[in-house]
Design a protein around this nucleic acid. Structure first.
Length: 488
RNA sequence: GGUACCUUGGCCGAGUGGCUAGGCACCGGUCUGCAAAACCGGCUACGGCGGUUCGACUCCGCCAGGUACCUCCA
């Protein structure tokens, strides 16, 4: 097991050596999607980032329990007059059961993530399936005196909490500053202080999603689910909590406050946050309406897209930037990723066919170590990828005979590419579309064979005619030594 | 307004107090009947102004521009 993985901890604002609470086990909780719409490019970032971490942990020998929730209740709409539940609002609109909406979008979320080769988490709990746990959490906080009941709702007493603990330690905020700089929101009269947050919300008569509780019918507050489910499945103390940077405040700050009262201080060791994907320099987000769904990316069905991009192109694009940097979307960048990935995968194919020599002028062990070093340094996937591109030079040089590699080094090289490109980065070969239309394939091959015999007779007019006509239809012909290749 | 962060070559994107990341594009070469593809090679950038230093893209200060969070958001 590698023992020198460093991760950036949002809590300490620096890279820290990762030490598991109970090796070889690792408990990791990541904030998942609110299922009331299709997943967009922004959702792919945390999914892929924590998939990378999940995969790497496993590769270096940890047994990971990875919990990623599905939020199907609890989030309020800020723009709605009465604070309707997001899921419920959508349900009314489409005249279906709220759970139908949640199911529909969960399924689509899974479909998109599967395409991106994101591994399913070990446990994927739903907020609606853990109402009891959230009620228990709320009761526990009331019992300790850090929450109060008001009008059938329960609020966390941030002011009181802050006297003993530090509210704002994760996001670097100071409560006094927050008071002076916040704007007035509706429905604040139930609260003692504006920064108190709901553990449980009283449901208005028209609110569809509601459950019985000691405080009347209602639904859980915004931050309760992660605390309740995280600790249920990972214990009072666990290793990692992840999510997008936009959740740092207030979501994760509130979670820390809840956890501190409910299970004790420092219940989570490492807080890991991925940065945002931007478009034209601005955050891609639901509320800004500037998002592109993954489905649109895969099919090309969005005006801003010049073409469709395959799931692996999206994955590679995201991995080519470090997870804590913003990543700017553009067609140009995506196309660059697409070409780069294709070259990399081609190189791996070449690698499989390399023959070892007696001589050797490549240090594969150093190469392998460089790859581990990149990952150990806070999951530096861009550096890892650049290493893999560097290795391509050797692969191609060996293939053309200008460099030599012996069996031992060749085996290490193969193993390194296999490990990092496929297992750790989670990339895979994509089946070409042509494969699912056998008749087309046969026809094109036949035509190109005709062209080949024309070429043998040096009948350039015919051979160029065939190529030009195929190009017009949209089939790109590439001549090779053995004959030809083509793609649509 | 408060807090934090960012500004790297045509584009994307790493990183470092001295040792040209990488990808894409572009240019040259090899190959090819031609072309494409592939491969090889070239392309030496770090917002502005000061300061610290033998030396700064890297540290400090100021300025400019941008972003995020402060409300649901990955």
């Amino acid at each position: 097991m590698q023992e020198n993985l460093f991760l950036y901890n949002s809590l300490s604002r620096k890279k820290e050596k990762f030490t598991a609470i109970k090796p070889p086990f690792v408990g990791m909780y990541v904030c998942g999607p609110t299922v009331y719409g299709d997943a967009h490019l922004g959702h792919a970032r945390p999914a892929i980032t924590f998939d990378l971490l999940f995969r790497y942990f496993q590769h270096i020998g940890y047994k990971v329990r990875y919990v990623r929730n599905i939020t199907d209740v609890g989030h309020l709409e800020s723009d709605a007059d009465q604070g309707e539940d997001k899921i419920a609002k959508k349900a009314k609109l489409e005249q279906v059961e709220p759970m139908e909406i949640a199911q529909f979008y969960s399924d689509r979320y899974h479909r998109d993530m599967d395409k991106l080769n994101v591994l399913r988490p070990s446990i994927e709990p739903r907020a609606s399936g853990h109402i009891i746990e959230q009620i228990e959490l709320t009761q526990k906080i009331i019992d300790t005196g850090y929450a109060y009941v008001s009008n059938g709702s329960v609020y966390f007493d941030v002011e009181k909490y802050n006297q003993k603990y530090n509210y704002g330690k994760l996001s670097g905020r100071i409560l006094e500053d927050l008071y002076s700089n916040t704007r007035q929101l509706d429905g604040q009269d139930e609260k003692r202080n504006s920064f108190d947050f709901a553990l449980w919300k009283n449901a208005s008569p028209e609110h569809i999603m509601r459950w019985n509780s000691p405080w009347g019918q209602g639904f859980p507050g915004w931050h309760a689910e992660c605390s309740a489910m995280g600790h249920k499945y990972l214990g009072e103390k666990f290793d990692i909590h992840g999510g997008g940077m936009d959740l740092l405040f207030p979501h994760h700050e509130c979670e820390i406050a809840q956890n501190t009262i409910a299970v004790g201080e420092n219940s989570i060791n490492y807080w890991v946050h991925n940065n945002m994907i931007t478009i034209n320099g601005q955050k891609m987000g639901k509320s800004l309406g500037n998002f592109i769904t993954l489905d649109e990316l895969f099919t090309g069905a969005n005006k801003v897209l010049e073409k469709a991009y395959s799931p692996m192109t999206i994955r590679f694009f995201i991995l080519q930037a470090h997870y804590r940097s913003t990543l700017d979307f553009s067609n140009e960048a995506l196309q660059a990723a697409e070409k780069g990935l294709a070259r990399l995968l081609k190189g791996v194919e070449t690698l499989q066919g390399l023959k070892p020599s007696k001589e050797n002028n490549f240090d594969a062990e150093k190469f392998r170590q460089d790859c581990y070093d990149a990952m150990n340094d806070d999951l530096n996937s861009p550096i890892l990828i650049s290493n893999l591109f560097e290795g391509l030079k050797t692969i191609n040089s060996v293939a053309t005979g200008s460099e030599k590699i012996d069996e031992k080094n060749l085996n290490i090289l193969k193993e390194t590419y296999n490990t990092f490109l496929f297992n750790v980065l989670g990339l895979k070969l994509e089946n070409e579309d042509a494969g699912n239309n056998e008749m087309l394939e046969d026809v094109v091959n036949m035509v190109l064979n005709l062209r080949l015999s024309a070429k043998e007779k040096k009948d350039w007019a015919t051979s160029d005619f065939i190529r030009d006509e195929l190009t017009k239809i949209g089939i790109k012909v590439k001549d090779t030594k053995e004959g030809f290749e083509w793609e649509i």
